[in-house]
Design a protein around this nucleic acid. Structure first.
Length: 720
DNA sequence: TACTATTTAATTTTT
DNA sequence: TTAAATAGTA
């Protein structure tokens, strides 16, 4: 057996990981240390050298992209396609299991997956049904609560209300929400995981089968696992399964979504005799960039601890630019980009990173002015577009008529005279009789309805019935095409003014071709339509209709994880923006921001620019802020400060500045000034607006969370 | 029912 | 600033 291709080009530690004995392994893999590489080669090693059947391997990732890439790389390495090797996302694999064992899981055969948008709609409707004031109970927070509980593995009955009425109410919302989903055969993302976990936990035979089957579990981005994912892994591994997990605690940036880095420590306890291997050699960045990243992250306390090193060049200093305002900042970035591109570099090798999406607007304007093509990551994805979701709702209603969520979405789209009144009657009936809206129509048609409404509703019912029967023997893409045709959605969008409707119609056409190219495995016991619908929910589709072009990449610091670029700009590096205001207060929040910063810095291969604006217009008002504390955590030796060479034209909002300075002087208030308030205690002034008697200041008080706006003339602040 | 005016709130988002 | 959601009007 020639093992050279599998071990070639790996360093000693990587090799050690790849060839590790079959016992639990925890690989701590620093940024750019070849984490995916190790995972891929490990899989190849097991199959090729240890003669483990691909069937006994399970590989889990977080994104579809990572899963696809991993499969591709394994196949390239082994030079053969690996069938019956389970590689997928947690959600994808959970979904697969639920489809296979829908009965044991307590689902109907044609259950549908809903995305967070659908979920929110359901919650909103639920609140309306219960006659709850949305101002008192924000739907988003209820959604947050439900998903949070599911991520932790809790059903409503498992949650203690702790005598808290608020909590009690939330639990009851969760309970009602669950009933709605169960009735409509709807499964949200978190539910996929929770169900799959319960499925294995409650069905010993099934679990034993999987235990016999899966001997090796490979896990990517282990630091991002939430409680339910980790439990599922443990359950699946059992006593004999061998987990091989790869992660980096310093790149844990999704704790706010339920990810628990602590699993890295738990792992060593839960699996005895764990082999711990640290990959610390970085192959990506220059020494300067790497040292800077190390220096920043060393300010965090809760770390496993490792030190990345490189044999690479020292490289260029990190350039820090202090801009007057956000316009100046983006112009600077665009100028530097221009120079870099003119030197013959590919635009696609550069990326601009920001903390929050709203920051992209100014950058876009400058890029458009300079005529530099760019691409923004993280916008609406194909299957999330509303016209696509409309079409899908028709298809879902055909597959499952009890899907109230889809019913409501399209019952009057295009408008067919079924107004709020009629729907209200339907809702009432369905609530009182605990049936779906579809079922309610039957009863309602025979009762209390005006003739007009009755006619409209009846037409809708007939339309869905007609679609259902006509589509019965069609293949997938004809089905999609036919349903879109019968729905008359195209006509509906034609009426929309502007070229928006045009795009929507194009997207609908694109949906048909997506269905055309969708591969169906007929051996599986699921209808092609249901499979397509699940696919749509699970893989929202990165830009289906987009053409590839050489362009500058714009994205948030979160979405850049896992990528690398020769040239990186990190912009908006100001305290309050990054670290974000809402994370500054507590140390765990701040540490997560710092990890995010670490992720950002370590994306750069050769050149890193860091920029901040002294003045930034946010939500329509001007803010002054300090450079991000993370900048000062980078040792000076790695930094080259760039000062504007020429005095620029005065900043755009010069009037405001004059006003602001005036009031500041007049009242002795300046940003950063410490103050004392009788009720709120001590705090720091973050912001100031208005003038004279109506001057208001934003103060961050130490005792309370968040900040408060106070009118100076009433607040009686004492300067400290 | 559909359009327009007003109000409100504003991190990050793998699935 | 702005986008989205709601309330009010034709």
């Amino acid at each position: 057996m020639d093992v050279t291709p599998i071990l070639d080009g790996l360093n000693d530690v990587q090799r050690q990981a790849v060839t590790a004995p079959p016992k639990p392994a925890l690989i701590i893999a620093g940024a750019g240390s070849g984490k995916t590489r190790v995972l891929v080669h490990r899989a190849a090693w097991l199959i090729e050298v240890e003669h483990v059947s691909p069937q006994s391997l399970l590989a889990v990732t977080f994104t579809n992209k990572a899963a696809t890439e991993m499969r591709g790389r394994i196949e390239t390495l082994l030079k053969i396609p690996v069938q019956n090797l389970w590689i997928g996302t947690f959600h994808g694999l959970a979904h697969r299991m639920l489809r296979l064992h829908w009965q044991e899981a307590g689902l109907s055969k044609n259950f549908q997956i809903i995305d967070s948008d659908d979920q929110l709609r359901i919650i909103k409707r639920l609140l309306k049904n219960l006659d709850v004031d949305e101002n008192q109970w924000a739907p988003k927070e209820i959604q947050w609560f439900i998903n949070g509980q599911k991520d932790e593995g809790f059903r409503p009955k498992d949650i203690n209300d702790e005598g808290d009425l608020n909590r009690k109410q939330l639990i009851s919302f969760y309970d009602s929400y669950e009933k709605i989903c169960q009735r409509g055969s709807l499964v949200d993302f978190a539910e996929l995981l929770l169900r799959a976990h319960e499925l294995l936990r409650e069905n010993k035979n099934l679990l034993q089968n999987y235990h016999r089957r899966f001997r090796h579990l490979l896990v990517d981005e282990f630091q991002d696992t939430n409680a339910i994912q980790y439990s599922w892994l443990k359950l699946l591994a059992g006593d004999k399964g061998v987990p091989f997990v790869v992660g980096d605690d310093d790149q844990s940036i999704y704790q706010w979504r339920g990810a628990r880095v602590e699993h890295i420590n738990h792992f060593q306890k839960d699996f005895t005799d764990t082999n711990i291997i640290k990959l610390e050699q970085n192959y990506r960045s220059t020494e300067t960039i790497l040292n800077a990243a190390n220096a920043v992250i060393s300010n965090n306390n809760s770390r496993v601890g490792k030190n990345l090193w490189t044999e690479g060049n020292v490289g260029e200093s990190i350039k820090v630019y202090s801009a007057y305002n956000e316009r100046d900042e983006s112009d600077f970035i665009v100028n530097r980009l221009r120079e870099w591109i003119d030197q013959g570099n590919a635009r696609t090798d550069s990326a601009i990173l920001y903390r929050s999406n709203a920051q992209s607007r100014v950058l876009e304007e400058s890029l458009i002015n300079a005529q530099i093509p760019y691409k923004i990551y993280g916008g609406l994805r194909f299957f999330e577009r509303s016209e696509i979701k409309d079409a899908l709702a028709y298809l879902r209603l055909i597959s499952n008529q009890d899907d109230d969520s889809s019913f409501e979405r399209i019952v009057n789209k295009p408008t067919r005279g079924i107004g709020a009144r009629t729907i209200e009657i339907l809702r009432n009936y369905s609530r009182e009789n605990a049936c779906s809206l579809w079922q309610a129509t039957d009863a309602i048609l025979n009762q209390s309805l005006s003739n007009r409404a009755k006619k409209s509703l009846n037409e809708f019912i007939l339309l869905i019935r007609r679609m259902t029967s006509e589509v019965e023997n069609m293949n997938l893409h004809d089905t999609v095409d036919h349903v879109i045709h019968l729905s008359t959605l195209v006509n509906f969008y034609k009426k929309e003014k502007g070229d928006k409707g045009e795009t929507r119609i194009e997207n609908l056409a694109e949906l048909v071709s997506a269905a055309k190219s969708f591969e169906i495995d007929v051996s599986e016991d699921i209808s092609p339509l249901d499979k397509f619908l699940s696919h749509a929910a699970l893989e929202a589709g990165e830009g289906q209709a987009e053409t590839w072009e050489d362009c500058v990449q714009l994205m948030t610091m979160h979405s850049v994880k896992g990528l690398e670029f020769p040239l990186i700009f990190m912009c908006g590096m100001e305290d309050g923006l990054f670290p974000h205001q809402r994370s500054i207060a507590d140390s765990s929040g701040l540490e997560e921001e710092r990890r995010l910063c670490y992720v950002g810095i370590t994306r750069a291969k050769q050149i890193l620019y860091i920029t901040y604006a002294e003045q930034r217009r946010l939500h329509g008002i001007d803010n002054f802020s300090q450079p991000s504390r993370f900048i000062s955590e980078i040792p000076n030796e790695y930094i080259e400060e760039i000062r504007p060479k020429v005095q620029r034209v005065l900043p755009v909002h010069s009037n405001n500045i004059k006003q602001k300075m005036y009031t500041e002087n007049e009242l002795g208030i300046k940003l950063g000034q410490r103050v004392h308030h009788k009720k709120f205690g001590d705090g720091v002034i973050l912001n100031c607006e208005g003038q004279g008697a109506s001057t208001r200041v934003e103060v961050n008080f130490e005792q309370s969370s968040g900040t408060k706006w106070l009118v100076l003339s009433y607040a009686n602040l004492d300067l400290m």
